[in-house]
């Protein structure tokens, strides 16, 4: 686009300024109503009775137990899913086998299953009524209405996150670098740690970030499997629900504000990764 001509004439491959600014205004207005307003509302409602009231409700035993449980769940399920994601991406991108497309479809399956149905599946598999669940309860290891069930439900809904980020990146990078390292006599693990991991670290971090945000915020699947026992299986999102239904608005929104802050930090880090390490992320995230 030449600079002088641009002032008087519009390039044939551009919209008129009026059309352009209308579209930009629509984008701003739409996102303001749909996204920014709900985000602001969380903090407005949380601070409705002042900062002190909000902080006090966050220090209550219910809130503290919920925060602790949610952090524990994320600390277990996210690394497990990261290990799965790395293993699955390695298996899929470093080897040629039949049924690869089908395997990828299976890994993506949790995205098209309702979280409530996911929770239901886990209840049917591991609940006290099922053969396996009944046996486990008899051994003293209840899954449903206990922490393992929440972890399984969380892992189910976040299952594809890391694998999805890694697979396209590892396909793009190919196998040549690993093959060179192997030829030079490096062991399998050494190849992974010194060649593959440095190449995929930003994509891995990206996947882990998204996985963690979803893990800490999961509600539907956890509602079904947790039983929402106060102090034991009530996570942050389910505690928000309980407090909201008991008309403890400030308490519910204060906890919600903590999760909203987490979401904002996640977006911030994600955007930073997209700007700084675009070349090492899946093509879909480079913009």
């Amino acid at each position: 686009m030449s600079d002088a001509a641009q002032i008087r004439f519009r390039a044939a491959t551009e919209e008129s300024p009026a059309a352009r600014w209308t579209l930009i205004a629509l984008a701003f207005a739409g996102l303001a109503i749909l996204v920014f307003a709900p985000l602001i509302a969380v903090f407005v409602e949380a601070l409705a009775e002042g900062v002190t009231a909000s902080l006090k409700s966050l220090a209550s035993p219910d809130a503290r137990d919920a925060i602790r449980l949610t952090l524990t769940i994320a600390a277990i399920s996210v690394p497990l899913n990261a290990v799965f994601g790395i293993a699955a991406a390695w298996f899929i991108t470093k080897f040629d086998f039949r049924g690869k497309a089908f395997l990828i479809t299976l890994i993506d399956l949790p995205f098209s299953v309702s979280p409530v149905v996911a929770g239901l599946c886990i209840v049917l598999m591991f609940g006290a009524n099922s053969a396996l669940g009944g046996w486990l309860v008899a051994q003293g290891y209840p899954i449903v209405f206990a922490m393992p069930g929440i972890i399984l439900a969380t892992m189910f809904v976040t299952f594809p996150f890391v694998a999805r980020e890694l697979i396209p990146v590892m396909i793009e990078q190919g196998r040549a670098e690993e093959e060179a390292a192997l030829t030079l006599g490096a062991s399998g693990w050494r190849v992974f740690w010194t060649v593959t991991l440095p190449n995929i670290r930003w994509a891995l971090l990206y996947g882990v970030l998204l996985c963690n945000a979803r893990a800490m915020g999961e509600f539907g699947a956890v509602s079904v499997v947790s039983g929402k026992i106060r102090g034991q299986t009530a996570t942050m999102p389910t505690t928000i629900e309980m407090q909201y239904q008991e008309y403890l608005s400030v308490a519910a929104f204060s906890l919600a504000a903590v999760l909203a802050l987490l979401a904002l930090v996640t977006l911030l880090l994600k955007t930073a990764l997209e700007i700084r390490h675009a070349d090492q992320l899946a093509a879909a995230h480079r913009h």
């Binding site: 800490m216 509600f219 909203a260 977006l267």
Partner: peptide, 26 residues
């Protein structure tokens, strides 16, 4: 533009229960 671009992903990052009570409040 950058802020709009990042904001598009907020529904992915914001827990659904949080979105639920906040939309209801609005």
């Amino acid at each position: 533009r950058r802020i709009l671009d990042a904001a598009v992903d907020l529904p992915f990052a914001l827990p659904t229960a949080v979105a639920g009570i906040s939309l209801t409040a609005l």
